[in-house]
Amino acid sequence: MALKEVLLVDPERCRGHGICCLLAPELIDLDDWGYAQVLKSQPLSSDELKSASRAVAGCPARALSLVQEGQKDQRN
């Protein structure tokens, strides 16, 4: 079985180009200020993973990444 992956936006890098939103409209929306916001509850299905990978590759700010579930939100 494939590892469960989640799509993350690095808020420090995201510059609000919105390209991701064109590449994966079902996964990403732009907020009121034009910054990327992940819509889908995670982890992603294999179809969603494909389109997420396109967005990751297309982001000019390299703000998007796919990481394994459980790797996020561990700041300590």
Partner: peptide
């Protein structure tokens, strides 16, 4: 002021 949602959101 690094992250859009914080920089613009909090002000808003």
């Amino acid at each position: 002021g690094q992250c859009g949602p914080c920089r613009y959101g909090l002000d808003h």
